[in-house]
Design a protein around this nucleic acid. Structure first.
Lengths: 160, 160
DNA sequence: ATGTTTGCAAAATTTTTGCATGCAC
DNA sequence: GTGCATGCAAAAATTTTGCAAACAT
């Protein structure tokens, strides 16, 4: 049983959108994809293998729709295009990104300590949080090793 | 004494770039600006008032340069264009953004509890953090009031 | 049947690049 | 003087839109 696809059907029905093959195919691409940070062009490439007649505009419109339906989450890693990942609700809220400033690899980590931060924000600033996104920039372990081997100092920490 | 402009001069000299009037004018625009999340087009508009002959390409090249020099920080609020803010070192690391999903207002808040998170990341994942960016999405107090007045329920919290 | 969704092509928007001229060093 | 930086215009890249045809309900 594939709960993500069920969610699509449910939410499509709820909001009176239509369950088209394109929409199912696009969601399936995300489910099957190796990589989980896909750009519109990436999705286009994947979906074209299964449904070659699809148009790029449909990809864009569908990514927008899925984001609205909270099936996908829109990401930006500063590479000049939007990227999307499956929004696995229970999970996603504690799921953040580590971006290596050297090799640009994006990895993920889980943490729930930001919950505490959110309640502070709610109290102090009267802001009702529904989601957050944390990007941490730095050097991944591979790059740290490479730099150590090359005798390069590890860059400024900006920690004052 | 304006330390930001001093920093520009120092870093430009360090890296053997040239201190041009355009570069100074662009930085001054950030120092003087009311709004502190400026897009290339915003900067272009501001600088043109002082130096009408400037080209938009210069703005782009300069924003890139300043980001490289750590004078500016590149931001993305999902509105389809890059935005930049002064990178006030001692300060910036604890400085995050609250984005209202209703009115798109971006406000700021300070917090240093992410320091702790960084040391956890360093230990657990062997990732050497140099910076982080936190975006918190939700409803600002104004929108909460409006919604309350209108009898609308405040949207899903996604907090499981 | 009807109104939504699609694919295509064209447009819009943001950003980048090539090149001759100008300016900081 | 030399070479980096600028302004302009053109190009590139990403995303959006208009429209007739196709499809889900």
């Amino acid at each position: 049983m594939n709960s993500t696809m069920e969610k699509l059907k449910e939410r499509i029905k709820d909001k009176k959108y239509k369950l088209t093959t394109q929409r199912q195919t696009i969601l399936q691409a995300f489910i099957d994809a190796e990589e989980n940070h896909l750009s519109a062009e990436d999705v286009y490439g994947l979906v074209k293998q299964v449904a070659p007649e699809i148009g790029l505009a449909t990809i864009y419109r569908t990514l927008d729709l899925f984001t609205e339906l909270d099936l996908l989450k829109r990401l930006d890693f500063g590479d000049g295009r939007n990227r999307y990942e499956l929004n696995d609700e229970e999970f996603a809220h504690f799921h953040h990104h580590l971006i290596c400033v050297k090799c640009n690899e994006v990895s993920e980590f889980e943490d729930d300590m930001l919950e505490t931060l959110e309640s502070i924000i709610a109290k102090k600033l009267n802001f009702h949080t529904i989601d957050h996104q944390l990007k941490v920039y730095g050097y991944c372990s591979k790059c740290q090793e490479k730099m150590k081997a090359a005798g390069e100092p590890i860059g400024p920490t900006h920690h004052a």
